[in-house]
Computed example of a mutant assay.
Amino acid sequence: MLQTEIFDKNVEAYEHWYEEYPEVYQSEIDAIREQLQKLPENIRGIEVGLGTGRFALPLGIKEGVEPSEAMAKKAINRGIEVIDGTAERLPYGDLHFDFVLFVTICHLENMKNALAEAHRVLKHKGCVIIAFLDKDQSVAKQYIEKRHRSTFFAKANFYTVDRIQRLLKEFGFKDLEFNQTLFGDLDTIKEVQLPKQGFGEGSFVVVKATKK
Protein backbone atom coordinates (compact mmCIF):
# COMPACT_ATOMS: atom_id res chain seq x y z
CA MET A 1 0.00 0.00 0.00
CA LEU A 2 1.11 3.55 -0.63
CA GLN A 3 2.06 6.05 2.07
CA THR A 4 2.58 3.63 4.96
CA GLU A 5 4.96 6.12 6.55
CA ILE A 6 2.39 8.91 6.24
CA PHE A 7 -0.21 6.79 8.02
CA ASP A 8 2.32 5.84 10.71
CA LYS A 9 2.99 9.51 11.44
CA ASN A 10 -0.60 10.77 11.28
CA VAL A 11 -2.71 8.30 13.26
CA GLU A 12 -4.35 10.97 15.40
CA ALA A 13 -5.29 13.05 12.36
CA TYR A 14 -6.80 9.92 10.82
CA GLU A 15 -8.81 9.22 13.98
CA HIS A 16 -9.95 12.85 14.20
CA TRP A 17 -11.70 12.64 10.82
CA TYR A 18 -14.19 10.12 12.20
CA GLU A 19 -14.93 12.40 15.14
CA GLU A 20 -15.36 15.39 12.84
CA TYR A 21 -17.77 13.60 10.47
CA PRO A 22 -19.73 11.11 12.63
CA GLU A 23 -22.81 11.10 10.40
CA VAL A 24 -20.69 10.45 7.30
CA TYR A 25 -18.85 7.66 9.08
CA GLN A 26 -22.04 5.98 10.30
CA SER A 27 -23.63 6.27 6.85
CA GLU A 28 -20.64 4.42 5.39
CA ILE A 29 -20.83 1.73 8.09
CA ASP A 30 -24.55 1.21 7.39
CA ALA A 31 -23.97 0.82 3.64
CA ILE A 32 -21.25 -1.78 4.16
CA ARG A 33 -23.31 -3.60 6.78
CA GLU A 34 -26.23 -3.86 4.35
CA GLN A 35 -24.00 -5.85 1.97
CA LEU A 36 -22.49 -7.99 4.74
CA GLN A 37 -25.96 -8.92 5.98
CA LYS A 38 -26.60 -10.67 2.67
CA LEU A 39 -23.96 -13.25 3.58
CA PRO A 40 -24.63 -16.41 5.62
CA GLU A 41 -24.10 -16.31 9.38
CA ASN A 42 -21.07 -17.74 11.19
CA ILE A 43 -18.63 -17.22 8.36
CA ARG A 44 -15.03 -16.03 8.45
CA GLY A 45 -13.80 -12.91 6.72
CA ILE A 46 -11.10 -10.25 6.81
CA GLU A 47 -10.69 -6.57 6.15
CA VAL A 48 -7.67 -5.72 4.03
CA GLY A 49 -6.04 -2.41 4.96
CA LEU A 50 -8.08 -2.12 8.13
CA GLY A 51 -6.31 0.96 9.50
CA THR A 52 -7.17 1.53 13.16
CA GLY A 53 -10.15 -0.81 13.04
CA ARG A 54 -12.74 1.92 12.55
CA PHE A 55 -14.74 -0.27 10.16
CA ALA A 56 -13.83 -3.78 11.29
CA LEU A 57 -14.94 -3.20 14.88
CA PRO A 58 -18.55 -2.03 14.34
CA LEU A 59 -18.98 -4.53 11.49
CA GLY A 60 -17.93 -7.45 13.67
CA ILE A 61 -14.85 -8.34 11.61
CA LYS A 62 -12.33 -9.89 13.95
CA GLU A 63 -9.18 -10.01 11.83
CA GLY A 64 -7.35 -8.50 8.90
CA VAL A 65 -4.22 -7.03 7.36
CA GLU A 66 -2.61 -3.61 7.93
CA PRO A 67 0.91 -2.53 6.86
CA SER A 68 1.12 0.56 9.11
CA GLU A 69 2.48 -0.46 12.51
CA ALA A 70 1.04 2.57 14.28
CA MET A 71 -2.42 2.05 12.79
CA ALA A 72 -2.29 -1.67 13.57
CA LYS A 73 -1.54 -0.95 17.24
CA LYS A 74 -4.77 1.04 17.50
CA ALA A 75 -6.72 -1.77 15.87
CA ILE A 76 -5.17 -4.37 18.19
CA ASN A 77 -6.17 -2.21 21.16
CA ARG A 78 -9.72 -2.37 19.80
CA GLY A 79 -9.59 -6.16 19.99
CA ILE A 80 -8.89 -6.95 16.34
CA GLU A 81 -6.33 -9.54 15.27
CA VAL A 82 -3.98 -7.78 12.85
CA ILE A 83 -1.36 -9.34 10.60
CA ASP A 84 1.35 -7.25 8.98
CA GLY A 85 0.90 -7.46 5.24
CA THR A 86 -0.35 -5.76 2.11
CA ALA A 87 -3.32 -6.23 -0.17
CA GLU A 88 -1.01 -7.17 -3.02
CA ARG A 89 0.54 -10.04 -1.08
CA LEU A 90 -1.87 -11.42 1.49
CA PRO A 91 -0.24 -13.58 4.18
CA TYR A 92 -2.84 -16.36 3.94
CA GLY A 93 -3.27 -19.66 2.14
CA ASP A 94 -5.61 -20.35 -0.76
CA LEU A 95 -9.36 -20.84 -0.27
CA HIS A 96 -9.21 -19.51 3.28
CA PHE A 97 -12.06 -16.99 3.76
CA ASP A 98 -15.76 -16.56 3.06
CA PHE A 99 -15.40 -12.83 2.39
CA VAL A 100 -12.78 -10.14 1.93
CA LEU A 101 -13.59 -6.48 2.61
CA PHE A 102 -11.74 -3.49 1.16
CA VAL A 103 -12.51 0.06 2.33
CA THR A 104 -9.25 1.77 1.33
CA ILE A 105 -8.74 0.91 -2.33
CA CYS A 106 -7.68 4.47 -3.17
CA HIS A 107 -4.47 3.78 -1.22
CA LEU A 108 -3.64 0.44 -2.83
CA GLU A 109 -0.38 0.22 -4.71
CA ASN A 110 -1.77 -2.17 -7.33
CA MET A 111 -5.50 -2.78 -7.56
CA LYS A 112 -5.16 -5.68 -9.99
CA ASN A 113 -2.77 -7.57 -7.73
CA ALA A 114 -5.06 -6.91 -4.76
CA LEU A 115 -8.07 -8.40 -6.55
CA ALA A 116 -6.03 -11.40 -7.70
CA GLU A 117 -5.00 -12.01 -4.08
CA ALA A 118 -8.56 -11.58 -2.81
CA HIS A 119 -9.74 -14.13 -5.35
CA ARG A 120 -6.97 -16.53 -4.29
CA VAL A 121 -7.75 -16.49 -0.55
CA LEU A 122 -11.53 -16.69 -1.01
CA LYS A 123 -13.33 -20.02 -0.83
CA HIS A 124 -15.42 -21.09 -3.80
CA LYS A 125 -18.49 -18.83 -3.98
CA GLY A 126 -16.89 -16.51 -1.43
CA CYS A 127 -17.49 -12.76 -1.77
CA VAL A 128 -15.38 -9.68 -2.14
CA ILE A 129 -16.91 -6.45 -0.84
CA ILE A 130 -15.38 -3.18 -1.98
CA ALA A 131 -16.40 0.16 -0.46
CA PHE A 132 -15.02 3.16 -2.33
CA LEU A 133 -15.46 6.79 -3.21
CA ASP A 134 -16.86 7.02 -6.74
CA LYS A 135 -14.50 9.18 -8.81
CA ASP A 136 -17.47 10.62 -10.70
CA GLN A 137 -19.22 11.94 -7.57
CA SER A 138 -18.77 15.04 -5.42
CA VAL A 139 -16.72 13.80 -2.44
CA ALA A 140 -13.97 12.22 -4.54
CA LYS A 141 -13.94 15.32 -6.74
CA GLN A 142 -13.42 17.45 -3.61
CA TYR A 143 -10.47 15.32 -2.52
CA ILE A 144 -8.94 15.37 -6.00
CA GLU A 145 -9.29 19.15 -6.20
CA LYS A 146 -7.58 19.60 -2.81
CA ARG A 147 -5.10 16.73 -3.06
CA HIS A 148 -2.07 19.07 -3.26
CA ARG A 149 -2.67 20.04 0.38
CA SER A 150 -4.01 16.74 1.68
CA THR A 151 -2.09 14.52 4.10
CA PHE A 152 -3.78 11.29 3.10
CA PHE A 153 -5.04 11.83 -0.45
CA ALA A 154 -2.06 13.43 -2.18
CA LYS A 155 -1.27 10.15 -3.97
CA ALA A 156 -4.66 8.47 -3.78
CA ASN A 157 -6.10 6.70 -6.82
CA PHE A 158 -9.86 7.09 -7.16
CA TYR A 159 -11.95 4.74 -9.29
CA THR A 160 -15.17 5.05 -11.27
CA VAL A 161 -17.88 2.44 -10.84
CA ASP A 162 -17.32 1.35 -14.44
CA ARG A 163 -13.63 0.70 -13.74
CA ILE A 164 -14.42 -1.37 -10.65
CA GLN A 165 -17.00 -3.39 -12.56
CA ARG A 166 -14.54 -4.20 -15.32
CA LEU A 167 -11.77 -5.14 -12.86
CA LEU A 168 -14.03 -7.43 -10.83
CA LYS A 169 -15.18 -9.29 -13.94
CA GLU A 170 -11.62 -9.48 -15.25
CA PHE A 171 -10.44 -11.16 -12.05
CA GLY A 172 -13.11 -13.82 -11.86
CA PHE A 173 -16.01 -12.25 -9.94
CA LYS A 174 -19.69 -12.28 -10.89
CA ASP A 175 -23.16 -11.28 -9.62
CA LEU A 176 -22.22 -7.70 -8.73
CA GLU A 177 -24.62 -5.95 -6.31
CA PHE A 178 -24.31 -2.24 -5.54
CA ASN A 179 -25.56 0.18 -2.95
CA GLN A 180 -24.61 3.79 -2.23
CA THR A 181 -24.65 6.56 0.35
CA LEU A 182 -23.26 10.07 1.01
CA PHE A 183 -25.71 12.16 -0.97
CA GLY A 184 -24.18 15.64 -0.89
CA ASP A 185 -20.84 17.17 0.06
CA LEU A 186 -19.20 16.08 3.33
CA ASP A 187 -19.86 19.33 5.16
CA THR A 188 -23.57 19.25 4.29
CA ILE A 189 -24.23 15.77 5.71
CA LYS A 190 -25.57 16.33 9.23
CA GLU A 191 -27.76 13.22 9.57
CA VAL A 192 -27.04 9.54 9.07
CA GLN A 193 -28.24 8.56 5.61
CA LEU A 194 -29.92 5.30 4.67
CA PRO A 195 -28.16 3.48 1.82
CA LYS A 196 -29.91 3.15 -1.53
CA GLN A 197 -29.55 0.41 -4.10
CA GLY A 198 -27.45 1.01 -7.18
CA PHE A 199 -24.97 3.79 -7.88
CA GLY A 200 -24.72 7.13 -9.64
CA GLU A 201 -26.07 9.41 -6.91
CA GLY A 202 -24.05 8.77 -3.75
CA SER A 203 -20.34 9.41 -3.38
CA PHE A 204 -19.72 6.24 -1.33
CA VAL A 205 -20.42 3.03 -3.23
CA VAL A 206 -20.30 -0.54 -1.95
CA VAL A 207 -20.20 -3.51 -4.29
CA LYS A 208 -20.50 -7.18 -3.38
CA ALA A 209 -19.26 -9.71 -5.94
CA THR A 210 -19.06 -13.51 -5.84
CA LYS A 211 -16.07 -15.63 -6.78
CA LYS A 212 -16.89 -17.78 -9.81
Rank of each mutant, 00 (worst) to 15 (best):
112 K>P: 13
85 G>R: 04
90 L>M: 10
88 E>C: 05
92 Y>N: 07
113 N>G: 12
106 C>P: 10
87 A>V: 07
81 E>F: 12
80 I>W: 06
95 L>I: 08
104 T>W: 05
117 E>L: 09
78 R>G: 11
113 N>A: 15
96 H>M: 14
91 P>E: 07
103 V>I: 11
121 V>Y: 04
93 G>C: 10
90 L>G: 04
111 M>L: 15
116 A>F: 03
106 C>T: 15
102 F>R: 01
89 R>E: 12
114 A>G: 04
91 P>W: 07
87 A>S: 14
99 F>H: 04
121 V>G: 01
80 I>A: 02
82 V>R: 01
100 V>F: 02
79 G>Q: 10
120 R>A: 06
85 G>Y: 05
80 I>M: 01
78 R>P: 02
91 P>D: 14
116 A>Q: 12
82 V>S: 06
104 T>S: 09
109 E>M: 07
91 P>I: 07
85 G>D: 03
90 L>H: 05
95 L>E: 12
101 L>R: 05
110 N>V: 04
119 H>T: 06
95 L>R: 15
121 V>N: 06
81 E>T: 15
104 T>V: 10
83 I>A: 02
101 L>I: 04
107 H>Q: 06
88 E>K: 01
93 G>M: 12
100 V>M: 02
120 R>N: 06
96 H>A: 10
104 T>A: 07
78 R>W: 05
91 P>F: 08
116 A>D: 08
83 I>E: 05
